[in-house]
């Protein structure tokens, strides 16, 4: 319980740090939101009036306190360009991003787990070489190339899937495959190396000596421990996916957070950048806190520390 509370406290402190850092960074980078709204031809008097109306003429610390107050009310401000509430803009993108992240992660796990296990069990054999060859290829292919290639083959030539867009379950296949391939490759290598390490441990030899069959050794003794580093990687990758996969979203016209973040940065839409960074940081923190909690559940040694 103490470990749990400690972890949650760390997460809250990290979040406050991120909020402060993002606020300061946004206000330190060059660029004037008022000029962005009114355009280059605006009169100085109009700029001053709008600056006052938005409260941007007040001291930074007052603005910071307002910002924290807004956060407490889940009010992240208003986008400079669309004029819409940042929370609404982020909320409508969160669903597609979560959908894509879960699909890519599921696809990666489904492919990587058997591949890594098979490779480890047949270390040095042809299965291992094929699996690791696939893994190397998957990690090496960039998404900006794989995405259009998949579209060309699956959509244009074979006509199996839509080219792009978010229109039904079939439209999720190619972006998930694009995003999941690289992840599966890294995961497969991690599963293999982690499993190989565990399979050489004394307790595995002991289990075998006690007469446990290969399947029982693998599932009961080896995989459970091999999972721990894999879990860490999964947590980090899932956090990254929740931040939005910019290239994949762009290629597949997927209306997720990634493209919104890039556009808001390009347009210097500060409240939107601020809100998006906060949400991405929050996603990382939540996923990694959950990963740590899973660690606690899976590994009794950590609980007893």
């Amino acid at each position: 319980m103490g470990a749990l509370l400690g972890r949650l406290g760390e997460a809250a402190a990290s979040l406050l740090g991120v909020c402060t850092l993002v606020f300061l960074l946004i206000h330190l980078v060059p660029g004037d939101p008022v000029a962005a709204m009114l355009g280059e031809g605006a009169r100085a008097v109009d700029q001053a009036e709008l600056r006052a109306a938005l409260g941007l003429d007040r001291p930074l610390w007052t603005q910071y306190l307002d910002y924290l107050g807004g956060l407490a009310r889940l009010d992240l401000g208003v986008s400079l360009h669309s004029g819409r509430a940042v929370t609404a803009l982020l909320a409508e993108r969160a669903g597609p991003t979560l959908e894509l992240a879960v699909a890519a992660l599921a696809l990666a796990v489904v492919v990587a787990l058997p591949l890594g296990v098979l490779a480890a069990l047949h270390q040095g054999g042809w299965i291992d070489r094929v699996a690791m060859g696939f893994s190397m290829l998957g990690a090496a292919i960039p998404n900006f190339w794989l995405g259009p290639l998949l579209i060309l083959v699956c959509s244009l030539w074979l006509g199996w899937t839509p080219v792009s867009g978010r229109d039904g379950p079939l439209s999720l296949l190619l972006p998930a495959l694009t995003l999941g391939t690289g992840l599966a490759a890294v995961l497969a290598r991690m599963v293999r190396s982690s499993l190989l390490e565990v399979l050489g441990e004394d307790y595995v030899r002991t289990a075998r000596a006690k007469g446990a069959g290969p399947a029982r050794v693998l599932w009961r003794h080896a995989l459970r421990n091999a999972w721990l580093p894999v879990l860490t990687l999964l947590g980090l990758q899932f956090g990254a996916l929740l931040g939005g996969a910019v290239i994949t979203e762009t290629v597949f016209a997927w209306p997720g957070l990634g493209s919104l973040v890039v556009e808001s940065i390009q347009a210097r839409d500060y409240p939107l950048v601020q809100g998006a960074v906060l949400v991405i940081a929050l996603a990382y923190l939540v996923v990694n806190t959950l990963t740590d909690l899973l660690y606690l559940a899976l590994d009794p040694r950590i609980r007893s520390r």
Binding site: P148, L156, V163, S164, T250, V251, A253
Partner: peptide, 18 residues
């Protein structure tokens, strides 16, 4: 009005009739 940011993909969508 459909947003397709990547020009190659926009062209592929037109070719496929999407």
């Amino acid at each position: 009005l459909v947003t397709v940011r990547d020009p190659s993909v926009r062209v592929m969508k037109l070719l496929r009739g999407e």
